[in-house]
Amino acid sequence: MTEEGRAGSAERHLLDGAGDAPVPALSVDDLTVAYREQPVLWDVDLRIPQGSATAIVGPNGAGKTTLIRAILGLIPRAAGRVRILGRPLEEVRREVAYVPQRGSVDWDFPTSVEDVVLMGTYGRLGWFRRPGAQEREAARRALERVEMSAFADRQISELSGGQQQRVFLARALVQDARVHFLDEPFQGVDARTERAIMGVLHELRDRGDTVVAVHHSLQTVPDYFDRVILLNVRLIAAGEVETVFTEENLRVAYGGRIPYVAAPPAGEGPGGGGSGMGGDDGIPGGATGGATGRDMPGNAKGGGH
């Protein structure tokens, strides 16, 4: 957070923008996050091109959520530099959307679905202005995209987990951003919601936006995402799914125990793409997609929060 004003940042971002390649959507250099002087993320370097969908994958406590939160300036960085669209976060907040974990808020809060979606317009509105007809229209369109139009006036406590997640996605959509960060968007949602959310995320990518999501289910990675970041306190590997999402890398990231299910469970999304990989080391009980990574006895220290 304090970094933005530092001398030298201007030259750096010129450097980033130089060359023939377009500015990356996200560039992270030497990012280290420590909690009470214990490293939670060690010296992470990342480049994510625009118009891609990237999964952040790793065992529990690997620092996946921490990575997103550090990028968004929600927790202090011990070292490192983050650029979004080639510029410091402060300058491009309008271009950044965020979908936090569903469980991070109190769903008994007295407010309606439309109201929650409208919260995505607050930053743009600035001080003292209330959401008007224009914002409401945008909220309605966002709810349509996640197939939640019928719920606009519902109280949020009446929603199922999947519906809550779609409302959060709609709130991010209404921000009209170009880079989207999602923290476990498929955690505990139904198959239909998972497909709906993935559909929206692919739409975003196809129009040139960038999607970065913490993801738990390894077997859906090849179908859902173009790129993958394998994380376990340090960066294990990052890049195109075909080149990086290998059994060897997974073994390094998960400490030899890969929660990978070779055959996708029936009816639970598509995802047979990577069935040739792993499997023999998979822990039992991982049959329900999204929850697979949960109980991994990861060898990493430090919380993921």
Binding site: Y98, M119, Y122
Partner: peptide
């Protein structure tokens, strides 16, 4: 409701 979401928006 969700203070961190506000922080991300720069509020």
């Amino acid at each position: 409701f969700d203070g961190e979401y506000g922080r991300v928006q720069g509020i």
